[in-house]
Amino acid sequence: MTRTMPEPPPLDPSRDALFLDFDGTLVPLAERPEAVHVPDTLIERLHRLADRLDGRLAIVSGRYIADLDGFGLGALPVAGSHGGEWRLADGEHCALPRPKSLDAAREAFVAFSAAREGVIFEDKPLGAALHFRLAPQHADASIALAREHAAGLHLQPGHEMIEVRVPGVHKGTAIARLMDVPPFAGHRPVFLGDDVTDEDGFAAVTSLEGHGVLIGPVRESRAAYRLSDPAAVKAWLAAMLEPAG
C-alpha cells in the first residue's frame, strides 16, 4: 500500500525555524551541478521569509558554502558539505579539516571521469563526487570506484551520483548544531529535502519536535509531509508571505 503524505501546514512565524535543502528542493536537479539556475525572485523570497522568521531560515546542502554563495545565498545561514562546514547567523564560518585520503580519491575520480563520456567529477573542499546522470551505463563502475576509496571517509549515495566525503557529520548533525544557537534555539525545526541524504535531517527535526517535508514522489521516508517538486516548494514559500485575510 502506498503511504499517503499530506501537504505541510503553513509555517508559524512565531514558532518555527526553517531549514531548506538546495538541489531538488529549492531548484530542480540539473544535468551538471553548475547548470542549476536560481531565479532572482527565489533569492528575494528567501530573504523576505528569513526576515519574517526573524532570521530563522538556513540552507542545509551537500554543496560547499562557497558554491552556494555563488548562487546568491551569501547572506543566509548555511550548513554545507553535508554538515562539514557551516556559517552561523553572525557570519562566523567554521569547517572540519580536509582528510588527506580525499586527495587520492580526487585523483582517481578525475581520471575515471576523463575516460568516460558523460561522467562528471565534482570537486569539493570536503568531498569528491561522481555524477552519472548523463551516463547511467557507468553507474556501477562509478559506485565501485567510490567504494574503493571510501576507507576513512563516508560513502554517500545520492540522485544518480556517488560521493566520498568527510565522515562523522550529515544533514541531521548540521541542523542539530544550528538549533543549538541563536536565532534557531528554542524553536520548532521544519526541514525540506528530496534525497536520501536528507533522511538524517528528517530524523533530526522529528527528534526536536519538528517535522520533515519530502520533496518529490512518495517513498518510504522519515518525513511527515510532502510537496511534489521545487515548483510546489516555491508556491508554499510564497504563501507564507501573502497578507492575511
Rank of each mutant, 00 (worst) to 15 (best):
T2E: 06
M5R: 15
M5Y: 15
P6S: 13
P6G: 09
E7G: 15
P9G: 15
P13N: 07
P13W: 10
R15C: 13
D16N: 14
A17N: 11
L18G: 11
F19N: 10
F19M: 13
F19I: 13
L20H: 05
D21T: 06
L29G: 10
R32W: 01
E34T: 10
P39A: 10
T41Q: 15
I43C: 11
L46W: 01
R48W: 03
D51C: 03
R52G: 04
L57H: 06
V60I: 15
S61H: 00
I65M: 05
I65N: 03
D69R: 13
F71Y: 14
G72K: 04
L73T: 03
L76V: 11
L76W: 04
S81H: 04
G84K: 09
E85S: 02
R87C: 09
L88V: 00
G91C: 10
E92V: 03
H93E: 07
C94D: 05
R98T: 12
R98I: 01
P99Q: 03
P99G: 04
S101P: 02
D103W: 02
A108Y: 00
A108G: 01
A108K: 00
F109A: 00
V110R: 00
F112S: 02
S113E: 06
S113R: 08
S113W: 01
V119Q: 04
F121H: 14
E122R: 01
K124D: 01
P125K: 06
P125W: 05
G127S: 15
A128I: 02
A129S: 14
L134W: 04
L134Q: 08
L134D: 05
A139I: 05
A139P: 10
D140L: 07
A141R: 09
S142G: 11
I143R: 14
I143S: 08
I143K: 11
A144P: 09
L145W: 04
R147P: 03
H149E: 00
A151N: 13
L153R: 01
H154M: 13
L155W: 15
Q156I: 06
H159F: 07
M161K: 03
M161V: 13
M161I: 12
V164Q: 03
V166R: 10
P167E: 06
P167C: 06
H170Y: 03
A176I: 01
A176V: 05
D180F: 00
P182C: 04
P183M: 06
A185R: 14
H187E: 06
R188E: 04
R188A: 09
F191Q: 07
F191V: 05
F191M: 12
D195Q: 11
T197N: 13
E199A: 09
D200A: 15
D200Q: 07
A203S: 12
A204P: 08
V205I: 05
T206Q: 09
L208F: 07
E209K: 10
G210T: 12
A223C: 12
A224L: 15
Y225I: 02
Y225T: 01
S228W: 02
D229I: 11
V233I: 08
K234P: 02
L237D: 03
A238R: 10
L241E: 15
E242D: 12
A244K: 14
